[in-house]
Amino acid sequence: MKLILTHEVSSLGAAGDIIDVKDGYARNYLLPRGLATPWTKGGQKQVDALTKGREVRAIQDIEQAKSIKGQIEALPVQVAAKAGQSGRLFGAVSNGDIADAVKAAGGPQLDKRKIEVKQAIKSLGAYEATVRLHADVAATLKFEVVPA
């Protein structure tokens, strides 16, 4: 199925890209979440407008992304979570929890969809996550999960 991405999807592309995916993935994941719309000739005009707007903003965004990267990497972030005596969490730490902790620590507001964690966080300790700020700029966020 041919689709137009309306939001950035890490494994597929950026907003405005035209992609071809399997029908089930489109119907069950991309379309219900509003991450893509079906491709049409009229939609192609929207793609052209999105692409043009993205090119104009790209130069300004990369400078801003580099400054935000410096803020994020220097920020001491602690995520509070309920844990048992052995240090195992009741549940797991989500990307939304990490974004909220960065904001609470005095950092910038982050989109939880731009945060990538390599493994599920289910115990106390120090972890790292990658924050995609721009297509060319990614920050490494170091944070600690502490008991609440």
Rank of each mutant, 00 (worst) to 15 (best):
I18H: 06
A135V: 05
A148F: 12
E144C: 04
E144P: 04
Q46L: 11
R88H: 14
G87P: 02
G34H: 08
V93Y: 02
A135S: 04
I121K: 09
E128A: 11
S86H: 14
A92M: 01
K142T: 13
V47M: 04
A81V: 04
D48P: 06
G87C: 06
P32C: 07
W39Y: 15
I98T: 06
R57C: 01
A80L: 15
L110S: 03
G13T: 01
Q119P: 06
P38W: 14
K103P: 00
S67V: 11
V21C: 08
G53E: 07
I19P: 01
A105N: 05
K114S: 09
G42V: 00
G13V: 00
L124R: 13
R113C: 00
H134M: 04
K118A: 14
A15V: 00
K22Y: 03
I98F: 09
V117W: 01
L30I: 09
K122V: 12
R27G: 11
K118W: 12
F90K: 08
K66C: 02
V145D: 13
A99K: 00
A81W: 02
A101K: 07
I4F: 15
E63T: 12
I115L: 03
D136S: 09
V146W: 07
H134T: 09
A138M: 10
A83T: 12
A81L: 06
E55F: 05
L124F: 11
L141M: 03
V79D: 08
A83K: 12
A120G: 08
Y127F: 15
Y127D: 10
E8Y: 03
L110H: 01
D100C: 00
E73W: 08
G16W: 08
D17S: 03
A36D: 10
I18L: 12
L89R: 00
V117E: 06
G84D: 03
Y29A: 05
G70V: 08
A58P: 02
A135H: 07
S86V: 14
A74F: 06
D17G: 01
A139Y: 11
A104I: 03
Q64I: 14
A58V: 03
K66D: 14
G84Q: 08
G87H: 06
A80T: 15
D100T: 02
K82E: 08
S94Y: 07
E128R: 14
Q78S: 10
R57Q: 10
Q46S: 10
A49D: 09
V102L: 04
R113Y: 00
K52F: 04
I62L: 10
M1P: 12
R33M: 09
R33F: 03
H7I: 02
V145G: 15
I62H: 04
H7D: 11
I4V: 04
V137E: 09
A135R: 07
F90W: 12
L124E: 12
H7W: 07
I72C: 00
L89D: 09
S94C: 05
